[in-house]
């Protein structure tokens, strides 16, 4: 069951990550993950440990973070990274405060446990992975055009403000779908690392997404295997660390083997 969860997770997190890293939003996923703690803790205090309510709580606090971000950025005129750090650390600390009143296992929430995932959550991930892939297929062109350059996307006639909203909604739901299995702290790892590993080997957008899914599946299989073989090792961390090793290996291989240096080559780094 944990392996199946990891597969569904890879199918929606990795392609979303490909879009996020080019929108300079990789930190956004991390911030949303952290801030969901407040909602999860509140839902636990009110409704008890029911996975559905926990997810609803997480979703509410994720949307609250987005609203807060918007307020701090647009009205208080804070730089976006400052706004993001402020809002997520605020809600994260609120979550920890609330956790003090509940008997819930904080560690389990922070680092997740894919082996103890509930059946409801598994169903949620199955459905969400399919919905995400359908959204990506349907909005492939507008999403990538707006990632490339929002002004260009507007000149093509795409409604970029709706696309921004779509980005926020799919990221929020994906984050909520991930926190039970990978934990609040490691959400960003699942989003970003597979795409970052796939990047040097991609010569088109389809290749980037396909290979990032490939890297995600590879790290999921390896991570689940390692944690089953050597029991005290937590699965979430094992998968994230495998993805990190894949990233390093992928870039090292490209650096030594590749004729050119790929996308983040020295020439274009500045």
């Amino acid at each position: 069951m944990s392996l199946e969860a990891a597969i569904w997770l890879s199918l929606f997190a990795a392609p979303l990550g490909s879009l996020l890293i080019f929108r300079r939003l990789s930190f956004f996923g991390d911030a949303l993950g952290h801030s969901s703690l407040a909602g999860v803790a509140a839902a636990f205090l009110i409704f008890g440990p029911h996975p559905l309510w926990l997810s609803v709580g997480a979703l509410i606090s994720v949307f609250m973070t987005v609203g807060l971000l918007h307020l701090l950025e647009k009205h208080a005129k804070l730089p976006s990274d400052v706004a993001m750090t402020s809002s997520y650390s605020g809600l994260f600390s609120l979550g920890i405060l609330l956790m003090a009143f509940s008997a819930m296992d904080l560690e389990h929430l922070l680092f997740g446990d894919i082996n103890r995932i509930s059946l409801e959550m598994l169903w949620f991930m199955r459905i969400w992975a399919i919905v995400m892939l359908m959204i990506l297929a349907a909005f492939w062109k507008p999403l990538w055009a707006s990632v490339m350059d929002p002004i260009f996307a507007r000149s093509l006639g795409f409604k970029t403000q709706w696309l921004d909203l779509l980005f926020i909604v799919i990221t929020s739901i994906s984050v909520v779908g991930m926190i039970q299995s990978v934990g609040i702290v490691l959400v960003a790892a699942y989003l970003v690392l597979p795409s970052a590993a796939a990047l040097p080997w991609a010569r088109s957008l389809t290749q980037l997404m396909a290979r990032s899914i490939g890297f995600a599946l590879l790290s999921s299989f390896t991570g689940v295997f390692i944690s089953l073989r050597w029991p005290p090792i937590p699965t979430g961390a094992a998968i994230a660390f495998t993805a990190f090793v894949c990233l390093l290996l992928s870039h090292c291989l490209k650096w030594t083997w590749g004729k050119d240096f790929g996308n983040f080559s020295r020439k274009n780094r500045n």
Binding site: W144, A145, I151, F152, S155, L156, R203, S204, L205, N263
Partner: peptide, 28 residues
């Protein structure tokens, strides 16, 4: 519209041909 951009800040994995083809993507 061709905006005044000198080099792409965000370097997507796109070949020149795919990049040019993006111009034909619009709903209009």
């Amino acid at each position: 519209y061709v905006p005044q951009v000198n080099l792409p800040r965000k370097v997507l994995p796109l070949t020149v041909k795919d990049f040019v083809e993006m111009g034909t993507w619009g709903p209009r």
